[in-house]
Amino acid sequence: MTDADGGVRGRRRGQGELEGEVLSTLRTAPGQASAAWVQEQLGGGLAYTTVMTILTRLLAKGAVTRERAGRSFVWLAASDEAGLAAMRMRRVLDGEADRGAVLASFVTALSPDDERVLRELLEEAGDDGTDS
């Protein structure tokens, strides 16, 4: 693909991929960061408005926080990429009427290794630290 100036455009990234890149970039910031800083760190290939859209989506998902700084905002990662994926999974689960069926289908599709990890995590979560 070429752009209007005859240069080669980069491949089009999906929304989830962009969110992950923006979140990863924010996590490398020495503190709160402006949208312009995020855009610069991503190499300038994204429009400022695209960066703002992604940051606003991440804010709605609880993956970032923001504070007013003058006439704009500064942003801070509130979650890592695993946390963002977990939020997506919860949102899908929350949108289904039969949560049990969704969870059962999810668990039966897991690889044996993933199932083992899930069992270990559930055991840890159920262990309240008391000897009974």
Rank of each mutant, 00 (worst) to 15 (best):
A77N: 01
E115H: 15
A29W: 04
L110F: 04
D98K: 00
A69L: 12
A63T: 07
L26C: 03
L58H: 05
F73M: 05
G126L: 09
V22T: 08
M89L: 14
W37H: 02
L42P: 00
T56S: 11
E115A: 14
S111Y: 10
A36R: 09
A86H: 07
T50C: 02
G6M: 02
V38K: 01
T53R: 12
L110K: 04
V64A: 08
A85N: 04
E115W: 06
R119V: 14
G100N: 10
D113P: 09
D94N: 04
R88W: 09
P112M: 03
G95A: 02
Q39R: 13
R12Y: 01
Q32P: 15
L46D: 04
R91G: 03
S34W: 07
T49C: 03
S111Q: 06
T53H: 08
L118N: 00
A86S: 08
V102R: 03
L93T: 08
D127A: 00
E123N: 06
D128G: 05
R88P: 05
A36K: 14
L42D: 00
A101I: 04
T65R: 13
R12P: 02
L110R: 10
E96W: 04
V117N: 02
G70N: 09
A97R: 09
G10D: 00
L121K: 14
R90M: 13
E123R: 15
R91P: 07
A47D: 12
R27W: 05
L58I: 11
V74F: 04
G16T: 14
D114L: 04
S34I: 03
D94W: 02
A47T: 06
A4G: 07
S24A: 15
D127W: 01
D131W: 11
A82S: 06
D113C: 05
V107D: 10
R66Y: 12
R57Y: 08
F73C: 05
A109W: 11
T25L: 11
G14I: 03
A78I: 09
R116E: 08
T56L: 13
G126W: 09
T65A: 14
T49S: 06
A97Q: 15
A85R: 10
E40H: 13
E19D: 00
R71P: 06
T49R: 13
F106H: 11
G20V: 15
V38R: 10
G43T: 01
Y48M: 08
V64C: 07
M87I: 15
V38F: 02
L122Y: 12
S24I: 12
D113F: 15
Y48I: 09
V22C: 13
L26S: 05
W75V: 05
G70Y: 06
V8N: 02
V64S: 10
R116L: 08
Q39I: 06
D80S: 02
A29R: 13
D127M: 01
G45F: 04
D5Y: 10
D3K: 00
R9K: 09
D3A: 02
D113T: 13
Y48V: 05
G7K: 13
P112Y: 06
G100L: 06
L26A: 08
R71Y: 10
A109R: 14
G16N: 07
W75K: 04
G45T: 06
G31S: 15
D98I: 01
G100M: 01
F73N: 14
A78K: 12
D113A: 10
S132A: 02
E81G: 14
E115M: 09
